[in-house]
């Protein structure tokens, strides 16, 4: 709790810097306009004008807040101008992809811990693939799938699943191998089968690792979905909102979409954290 004051003062400093930057970056437009009209610019006029331009280079914080409020609560939720609508499109694809990637990652991790051949052949590639900028080719995957007639939620979910898959795989392999030799020996003396060992020892002891990966994975899924919404065809979702804002110079719209995405990411990560705490406490691990 003693970190609240420092955090608040850092946030306040960011706000002050932001307002300063607004005046600085937007003043060029104000001076241009004044020069065209043959007027001179007073300080008070400079301040009010830079804070209320329609298409500012950098919108002032209160303009972004205004845009965010309009987008979230100013429209019907089903309207195409509502940010809730776009956030829902993005969130649904993210969640489908997240579930898909988590399931596949856990399955493959179970396979890898039980088959040495699979471990030796797949794991090096899984780790090497982490260094490849997969996210950058996401829009291409979308376009190719669209030419096959696959559109809508599924292609985006596939990208999100792919990005979530590797953190879960790597974390689960580590987690399933977390039980030490003594615990495994104990189950051996109980004459436990391999599946018994998996269900009663390996899976429970992998839970902390799983949740650590899920926190990384859910953020990656969201980024994947947003980038997957960037190709020109998309009209729905936060990514499409960013792109159309950048085409038409609607900076307030870009910033509002950006803050919505940030809020969504924060909510998702916090939700995974809450589930983690509840599950681990029920299992007596936290």
């Amino acid at each position: 709790m003693k970190s609240i004051a420092p955090v608040l003062s850092v946030l306040a400093a960011i706000l002050v810097i932001w307002y300063g930057a607004t005046v600085l970056l937007n003043s060029k437009w104000t001076y241009d306009q004044a020069a065209r009209a043959g007027e001179s610019v007073s300080i008070s006029h400079l301040l009010t004008d830079t804070m209320s331009q329609k298409r500012p280079v950098l919108p002032a914080p209160h303009q972004v807040a205004q845009g965010l409020w309009d987008g979230l609560f100013g429209q019907r939720f089903t309207s195409k101008r509502s940010l809730v609508f776009h956030a829902w499109i993005t969130l649904s694809a993210t969640m489908v992809g997240f579930a898909l990637g988590t399931g596949l990652g856990i399955l493959l991790a179970v396979g890898i811990t039980h088959s040495r051949a699979m471990d030796l052949s797949v794991m090096p590639w899984a780790i090497a693939s982490q260094t490849v900028p997969i996210l950058a080719i996401a829009p291409m995957v979308i376009v190719v799938l669209a030419s096959l007639g696959v559109t809508g939620l599924l292609p985006k979910a596939l990208i999100a699943a792919y990005l979530n898959f590797f953190p879960v795989l790597v974390g689960m392999v580590k987690g399933l191998r977390a039980p030490d030799a003594m615990q495994l020996d104990l189950l051996k003396t109980y004459n436990a089968s391999r599946s018994g060992t998996l269900w009663k020892l390996r899976l429970p002891s992998s839970m902390p690792y799983l949740f650590a990966s899920l926190k990384v994975g859910v953020a990656a899924s969201l980024v994947g979905t947003i980038v997957a919404e960037l190709p020109a065809g998309a009209t729905q979702g936060l990514g499409a909102r960013l792109l159309s804002g950048s085409y038409y110079g609607q900076t307030v719209q870009i910033w509002a979409a950006l803050f919505t995405a940030a809020g969504l990411a924060a909510i998702l990560v916090i939700a995974v954290g809450v589930i983690e705490r509840v599950v681990l406490r029920r299992m007596g691990m936290a």
Partner: peptide, 14 residues
């Protein structure tokens, strides 16, 4: 943890 790629359109403008 945020989707920072989203600032790309803003920085391209600047």
């Amino acid at each position: 943890a945020l989707p920072i790629v989203g600032i790309a359109p803003i920085l391209v403008m600047w």
